[in-house]
Design a protein around this nucleic acid. Structure first.
Lengths: 200, 200
DNA sequence: AAAAACTTACCTAGTGTAAGGTAGGTAAAT
DNA sequence: ATTTACCTACCTTACACTAGGTAAGTTTTT
């Protein structure tokens, strides 16, 4: 039905396609170089545009970064929600699946790891984004863990908040080692061991 | 005994003092901005030098970074060795003290965290440094944990290598959260909880 | 239905500035 | 007499972003 080859049809369509392509290449570039190391020219080229072409869609590098992060956040939350539901709200199982999934997208894992580390400086554009993200996620997990403790799924001799923090720490820390030596580190297996330690 | 005020005495002394001052300010700057974000001019100014003055002592930014890392590594290994010895080779206790110590030097913790994240790209000057460092430390810990397992100090139902990886992951991950919200996260307390889980 | 008016997606060319590093010198220490 | 520590002045490149234009798509007017 669609006439595809060279001429892309409506303007709305072209715009959407361009923005998507830009976000995709920006995601890759930020993942590999971080915010400060990524060059607008590289991102533009990877999206088949010139630099001003890129800037037509996103007014500055900072804006672009924030859009990339928001987009990823949206996709990931949605994914987690779905996985949780699919696993009958069993948090431990769902989170293991999340880690397994992460093992298939090293680029994205690296994106968040690197930007997270960069963003610890208070003057980084994503500083607040990550602080808010952690707080939000932590609250979410504290709730879920509390429930799992009441169900007898998770050990109750340690507070839900402590468990939430430890779990995040483990996820983040494993990611770093996995990114450094992907063949050596079996991230999801290791995460599973940790989860066993948290069982009631 | 030393005549201190304005004129620093011998050249050897001046050189050592300058290099130390440079390393100190470079450490701070790299910690706050990462390698790519740190500017030679800032480092130079913080060391009371001009840029070429700095470059007289370290021929390039990359050289400077490597010196900073090697220096830290030296100090930290020495510290760990001493602490271990002081604690009668009890690894768990010694590592808790290490984490407590880290809580007093956020700048250094941030230095390693940020550079570690940056260095995951294969073209980063510190890429190999960190891979080697991890391997070395892991081996060291595997040995120590194996011994602790034989002494009945540490649970033996999980392999020493797995425990080593998990411990590092936890340390790194806790550091990130602690750096983001220092008042909220009691890093050494949380680490202690983890260590309890590893007890036999 | 076609022309006119406008909006959008991009481009080429250029700007300002920052940043790593060099050249070559001076003055103090050895 | 020579080496060392450091400076001023400069160079080159890189990079985020602007100015101003063209051509295609879209809406309005007749």
């Amino acid at each position: 039905m669609k006439q595809s080859p060279t001429p892309r049809r409506t303007q709305a369509e072209r715009t959407r396609a361009s923005r998507e392509k830009i976000i995709r290449s920006a995601t890759e570039t930020f993942a590999q170089k971080g915010f400060r190391g990524a060059k607008m020219a590289d991102i533009a080229k990877a999206a088949n545009l010139t630099e001003p072409g890129l800037l037509h869609h996103f007014p500055s590098k900072t804006h672009l970064l924030m859009e990339v992060l928001k987009e990823r956040d949206r996709i990931d939350s949605e994914r987690m929600r779905a996985t949780l539901q699919q696993n009958g709200n069993h948090l431990l199982e769902a989170s293991i699946e999340l880690v397994e999934h992460n093992q298939t997208v090293p680029g994205l894992v690296q994106l968040f790891n690197l930007l997270l580390a960069e963003s610890i400086s208070a003057d980084h554009p994503a500083h607040e984004f990550f602080i808010e993200r952690y707080q939000r996620e932590r609250e979410h997990w504290v709730q879920a863990i509390t429930q799992a403790q009441q169900n007898g799924e998770v050990r109750a001799d340690i507070s839900a908040e402590t468990l939430a923090i430890l779990t995040f720490a483990m996820m983040d820390g494993l990611q770093v080692q996995w990114l450094m030596e992907p063949e050596k580190i079996d991230m999801s297996e290791l995460y599973r061991v940790m989860m066993e330690m948290l069982r009631a």
